[in-house]
Structures are given as C-alpha cells and as structure tokens.
Amino acid sequence: MSEVRDDRQYTETHEWILDNGDGTYTMGISDHAQALLGDMVYVELPGEGDEASAEDEFCVVESVKAASGVYAPADLEVVEANEALDDEPELVNSSCYDNGWLVKFKSDGIDDLMDAAAYAETLD
C-alpha cells in the first residue's frame, strides 16, 4: 500500500503540499504517484523566482515509462527548487516525502486541497 502522510495536504493530481507556516510551502508528488510512474530519470524544475498560475504545469517528472506534469496548486512564486534532483532524480522514488521534494514556493493561500484521509480514500 502506498504511504500517505498526515502532516500535509494533497491534490487530485497526486501532488502533496506541506505548509511551512511562514507563507511558504513545500511540494512534491505522492508515494502513489511515484510508484505509478516507476524509476525516475529526469526532473525538469522551474527556476527561483518563476511564477505560475493555479493549474499551470510548472514541473515535469519523467520516469523510464512516462513524462508527467506537476501542476501549480495556486498562484505562486518559486522560492527554491530541489537541485539535488538534477543528479539524483531517483530521490523522488526513494524519498518522495522528504529528500525527493520538488519545489518550495510562496503563495497567498491554497484552497480546495484534500487532507490525508480524503486523499487516501481516492486511492482505494
């Protein structure tokens, strides 16, 4: 079974978002998503300061099997991208909730996300 962490929120497109409490958020893809995609070989990340509107595709994760867009959960500005993924995209597989995070961003607020329990239900 795929892991769902209680400390964060989720989107319908299988991204997780963690509120850092200082107006910034950290984002990645869920365990379910990484398992579905399989071995990750390339992550295309935005640059620091890039802006994205809600629902924009602003990152791409590519596995051997497929490329998958990662969507902005709200209007946002990128604060930091996880550069470790340039050399080790497989961190998204081995540590999707910790070292395999994708971006940190700031935003005025995010609505319409699922909590862990609601997200877990969608995976049944």
Partner: peptide, 8 residues
Amino acid sequence: PLNYGSQI
C-alpha cells in the same frame, strides 16, 4: 510483469 520493483 512490468518490473519487480525497479526496472533500472
């Protein structure tokens, strides 16, 4: 079987 864990 597509893989048994890691295709790579």
